[in-house]
Amino acid sequence: MTLLRITEIFYSLQGESNTVGLPTVFIRLTGCPLRCVYCDTAYAFTGGKKIGIDAVMAEVKQYDTKYITVTGGEPLAQQGCIELMTKLLDKGYVVSLETSGALDVSEVDPRVVKVMDLKTPSSGELSRNRYQNIEHLTAKDQVKFVIGNDKDYDWSKGILAEYALSDRCDILFSPMMGRQNPTELAEKILKDRLPVRFQLQLHKILWDDAQGK
């Protein structure tokens, strides 16, 4: 039986991505090889509880929603993550994966909606970006840039152009809380006519926390 180390399973509104606002079940896997300076889920780095995939499926079934987000930590750090997502998809759920982009996504079921972070310079983890992952993105996927300052913004614009990302999938620009003024970022996007979606973290606006509980 495949076991996963799980920090929490909870039901809330999706706070980010292009399904923002939709009732969603979040499965937060424990552990992450990265240490981004803006991380708001450091409590998921360690601990958690080992749970079989069938037990995870049973808990998810309690909630009357078709949307599931598998997150972390970095969920792909656990081998069983891919099996879990495929089983959820086979049950008819719409499954999204929140991943750092530092680990290989090539084995992820193509039905999964990948929401992949590309780490900006101020994240402290710029060197961990796995740019080969871009080749595995399709039109239903999304790439997120967390912008903390002008350097991050200019770098993100450069990556956007270098890889023609907006021709491949949706692009999300998100201001780093406490470092990047959201209005200033929005104005830059409009001034430069970038083909990106500006996003704020809805759960932090509604509940002032990381999870949206």
Score class of each variant (00 low, 15 high):
P23K: 00
P23D: 02
T24F: 00
T24E: 01
F26R: 00
L29A: 03
L29S: 07
T30D: 01
C32G: 11
P33K: 12
L34E: 09
L34M: 14
R35D: 14
R35C: 12
C36D: 03
D40H: 03
A44Y: 08
G48K: 08
K50T: 08
I51E: 06
G52C: 11
I53C: 03
D54C: 02
A58P: 05
A58D: 15
Y63H: 13
T65D: 11
T65K: 04
I68C: 06
T69S: 15
G72R: 03
G72H: 05
G72W: 04
E74F: 03
P75T: 14
A77T: 14
Q79Y: 13
Q79S: 15
Q79G: 14
C81E: 00
C81K: 04
E83Y: 12
L84G: 10
M85H: 08
M85C: 11
L89E: 09
L89N: 10
L89Q: 04
K91R: 15
E98R: 10
E98G: 14
G101K: 06
A102R: 02
L103N: 02
D104V: 03
V105R: 12
S106T: 12
S106C: 13
E107T: 13
E107Q: 15
E107P: 13
E107Y: 13
V108C: 14
V113M: 10
M116K: 07
M116G: 06
D117A: 14
D117P: 12
K119Y: 02
K119H: 01
S122N: 05
R128K: 15
Y131I: 11
Y131E: 07
Q132W: 03
I134T: 07
E135G: 14
H136G: 08
H136V: 06
